[in-house]
């Protein structure tokens, strides 16, 4: 039914997001808290280009991914120089800056009002309107993302990524240009986050700055940790869980007076329990 399709689509898009963060944080150890910013760049690129300028969907996605990659690359130059703690704080700050740009650059982003009326993707004349078709499109994107990232992390490149995660000094002594690798990883991660953003924009047909604020970056990280860092299948699982748990809680018969709060408390409890019982996540190979 439509509701299940809706959730399947949401989970698939979050699957792409979580995979992309896994690539950056789970495999390479770059704990980025600004991933949602690139998600937002992809979403807004598609929204603005298709709604305001009539660009085709594919072109808007390509531009969104390109933009995210360029911004990621530029930001990574000063950002990756920082040590872990400082890095996390600054990526925090970058997320907040990103949100404010979306909010205040009103001439382009329409600010707080958001952008509505984003149409369903049309690829080579074929319209992907309707949930079943859209799910197919998203699944294709998810599978492509998985396979591309899988290819990379299973190769010697992946060994180097993990080397950097475990000990970047040993990695550089082993002969790997750590800075160059980190920059490349951060950029590729941004690319796929933007792809997820483009898909989400055409799915909800409406976006606003709030959809890309700091908390979203945190949620992606939670999904990643939940599913397990350093394991690509885990990312899919993490995305499924983080979307599914609150939805399942809708059906638990909490009394009407406290329904909202109980759902939130239960959700929080489940997350805490999972972290206590299995801190490396469901399929994880890596603990921070």
């Amino acid at each position: 039914m439509d509701y299940i399709l809706h959730l399947a689509i949401t989970m698939s898009i979050w699957g792409i997001l979580t995979l992309s963060l896994n690539y950056v944080a789970g495999f390479t150890g770059i704990i980025s808290l600004s991933h949602a910013t690139f998600y937002g760049i992809g979403a807004y690129s598609t929204a603005i280009l298709t709604v305001k300028y009539g660009f085709s969907f594919l072109l808007s996605v390509a531009i969104g991914m390109f933009l995210a990659a360029v911004i990621a690359y530029i930001v990574s130059i000063p950002l990756l120089k920082l040590q872990e703690d400082a890095f996390i704080l600054v990526s925090f700050g970058f997320a907040i800056i990103g949100y404010h740009v979306l909010l205040n650059w009103q001439s382009i982003t329409n600010g707080a009002l958001g952008i509505k009326g984003i149409k369903a993707p049309v690829i080579f004349g074929f319209s992907f309107s309707g949930k079943p078709l859209f799910l197919c499109l998203v699944l294709v994107a998810l599978i492509c993302t998985y396979f591309i990232l899988h290819r990379i992390v299973k190769s010697p490149y992946g060994t180097i990524m993990k080397n950097i995660r475990e000990n970047s000094i040993v990695a550089s002594v082993n002969g790997h240009d750590v800075t160059a690798y980190k920059r490349s990883v951060y950029t590729v991660g941004a690319l796929f986050a933007a792809l997820a953003g483009s898909l989400m924009a055409t799915f909800l047909m409406f976006i606003e700055p709030k959809s890309f604020e700091l908390m979203i970056s945190v949620f992606i990280l939670i999904a990643l940790i939940l599913g397990g860092m350093g394991n690509l299948k885990g990312s899919i699982l993490g995305a499924v869980f983080i979307i599914l748990i609150p939805e399942i809680l809708r059906f638990v018969g909490f009394p009407n007076t406290i329904i909202g709060e109980m759902q939130q408390i239960t959700y929080g409890l489940i997350l805490v329990l999972l972290m206590i019982l299995r801190p490396q996540g469901l399929l994880g190979e890596y603990k921070i």
Partner: peptide, 10 residues
């Protein structure tokens, strides 16, 4: 938006 959309769909 995202949570409301899911709620509405449900």
């Amino acid at each position: 938006g995202a949570d409301a959309a899911a709620a509405t769909q449900k």
